[in-house]
Write a protein that binds this DNA or RNA. Structure first.
Lengths: 77, 77
DNA sequence: ATGTGACTTGAAGTCCGTC
DNA sequence: AGACGGACTTCAAGTCACA
């Protein structure tokens, strides 16, 4: 029995899916979102695909851009 | 007026203080905690001093070792 | 509008030690 | 028990051209 649909998959994939979900909910493209974050478009793409082991400072930037706390951003992980 | 005592200070410092607080609450030394995490003792020391921009995989390891979720670990940040 | 490979540079992370 | 330094290796950060 699973707690969440994202349980038991890699943390980077789960984080990426979460970011993508929240970004899309706001109707933003990857490119626009990357601009808001002050990050490169391809870097954000890599995060959403679970290829980047994002560090705390960028996690903070992403949460701030989504206007939620880091705790909320990592809620379902 | 401040929301939290740790607001407006660097995210790395806040994270480090949070880790230190939770580690001490469990009565663990830095070295023992580092061993449990499978990380280097000097690295964990650096994290607690706010000198390390910890990435997601290690945040997950730290949370798991403390037996809490990442969301709980980053609750007060 | 996004995925991907290749790349450089700076920081993550380890291992030795001293105070 | 923990801060801190030097030297080292691995990896995250950040960018680009092209599909």
């Amino acid at each position: 029995m699973t707690i969440s649909i994202m349980a038991n998959t890699d943390i980077l994939l789960r984080f990426g899916e979460r970011v993508r979900e929240l970004r899309k909910k706001r109707g933003w493209t990857q490119e626009a979102f990357a601009d808001y974050c002050g990050l490169d478009r391809t870097y954000v793409g890599g995060i959403e695909r679970g290829e980047r082991n994002v560090a705390l400072r960028n996690i903070e930037v992403i949460a701030a851009t989504l206007e939620i706390s880091i705790s909320q951003l990592t809620k379902s992980l």
